[in-house]
């Protein structure tokens, strides 16, 4: 079980670099074939600074460049094999493209149990800021831990 004392805990910063080759790998993994998601020149022709990070990619960026991608759940004592993704949301404040670097911070904002403690729900926010400190993207995740 995850205790209520986790609420308010912050983790990071996790530095994530948007890399063109990694974006091409992500495109392959997700079956994306549109040229602006693969090629810098095509992206620029479509009005982007460079290849855009797809909408869910900020979730990846918080994990890709860190020593342990599962760092903060482990620090909360969560057995990652017993975790399910419950909910995920994103809010965007600007373009995110190859070459960009973001600092991510995770904050646990709620913890609650269901089914007499069989399931723990851990709600966290993700904030990605550019080097000037401007908020570029926000995420909100509900993680479900199967305790029983």
């Amino acid at each position: 079980m995850v205790g209520k004392d986790a609420i308010g805990r912050k983790f990071g910063p996790y530095v994530g670099t948007v890399d063109a080759n990694r974006l091409r790998f992500f495109a392959k993994a997700t079956g994306e074939t549109r040229p602006e998601y693969l090629d810098s020149a095509a992206a620029r022709a479509a009005g982007w600074r460079d290849i855009p990070a797809p909408p869910t990619y900020p979730f990846c960026l918080q994990m890709l460049d860190v020593a342990d991608p599962l760092d903060w759940p482990k620090k909360l004592g969560i057995d990652i094999g017993r975790v399910l993704h419950g909910e995920q949301a994103f809010t965007y404040h600007g373009d995110l493209c190859a070459g960009d670097v973001l600092d991510f911070e995770v904050e646990v904002v709620d913890v609650y149990d269901k089914n007499s403690g069989a399931l723990s729900f851990v709600v966290s926010t993700l904030s990605g800021r550019d080097p000037a400190g401007r908020l570029a993207v926000e995420g909100r995740q509900t993680m479900v831990v199967r305790n029983a």
């Binding site: 790998f25 392959k28 994990m63 991608p69």
Partner: peptide, 13 residues
């Protein structure tokens, strides 16, 4: 397998 590598989500399940 591709998605695990491309996304950074290394959860082995």
């Amino acid at each position: 397998a591709l998605y695990a590598g491309a996304s950074g989500d290394h959860n082995d399940v």
